[in-house]
């Protein structure tokens, strides 16, 4: 899947018609800088994951990540981890869950359990893992696995702060569960050096209300 991404023609383009990257280099101090991810409507694109890579940019975090299950939802909705990092799936609900993944990145299954399982699961492959629950169809969660660089999920305002010097950044990727073309958004080249970089992505909003059972398939004919 990564291979596929790299071969995308968008890799070499600095400016894309559907994805507009504006790099603003603010003041000279080489301290922290912010990436703001907005959707096509200018709203903060929550659950977006921003990943930078370049020489000397590494993440040292090796702790066990937590994908909790609260109120029959995965929490967080999107979790970004380093390759070979362990993830624990504690069940904070008073019902049991059957966590599974059919994703090729990491197919696994944790049959009906309650509380915190003893063995966290290690994700050895880069990529995206879609999490479901066999008995709660509405439960959906994502784990993004990265092999290098620095990454993180944006906050509610669509922002994430990096402290690595911009000169070191070679690529910048953005992923979102509802990305219109379901691929990572990848940028390469030098950043502008501005303190605040805003990235706009195209995402698909899920239907606001689910159709009633009776009219689930709409009109019968035609």
């Amino acid at each position: 899947m990564k291979k596929h991404e790299l071969s995308s023609p968008q890799c070499t383009s600095t400016l894309n018609s559907s994805i507009i990257l504006i790099l603003l280099f603010l003041s000279s101090p080489a301290s922290a800088w912010t990436v703001t991810v907005l959707d096509q409507d200018g709203q903060p694109a929550q659950n977006a994951v921003v990943h930078i890579s370049g020489p000397g940019i590494t993440s040292s975090d090796t702790d066990v990540a937590i994908m909790d299950q609260v109120n029959r939802q995965y929490s967080p909705h999107v979790l970004a981890i380093r390759k070979n990092q362990k993830v624990s799936f504690p069940n904070s609900d008073n019902v049991r869950h059957h966590v599974y993944s059919f994703s090729k990145t990491k197919p696994f299954e944790m049959k009906l359990y309650a509380g915190t399982p003893n063995n966290p699961i290690t994700f050895e492959t880069e990529g995206i893992v879609v999490l479901g629950c066999n008995i709660h169809d509405s439960m959906l969660g994502y784990i993004a696995v990265y092999g290098d660089g620095k990454f993180g999920v944006v906050d509610d305002a669509g922002k994430i702060v990096f402290s690595e010097p911009q000169k070191s950044v070679a690529t910048l990727d953005i992923w979102h569960p509802n990305l219109a073309d379901k691929t990572k958004t990848h940028y390469s080249g030098h950043l502008s050096g501005q303190n605040n970089i805003t990235v706009t992505i195209n995402i698909t909003h899920p239907p606001k209300k689910t159709p009633s059972k009776k009219n689930k398939f709409g009109r019968f004919y035609k």
Binding site: V130, D137, M139, P211, K216, F217, G218
Partner: peptide, 27 residues
């Protein structure tokens, strides 16, 4: 759009009334 479709298909010399649904896992 609708989460599924109930329709009829003409496949070669046969016709079927069909329901087509997405297989969700969970996407």
């Amino acid at each position: 759009e609708d989460g599924g479709i109930l329709t009829a298909l003409l496949i070669k010399d046969s016709a079927y009334q069909v329901a087509i649904l997405p297989v969700m896992a969970p996407t």
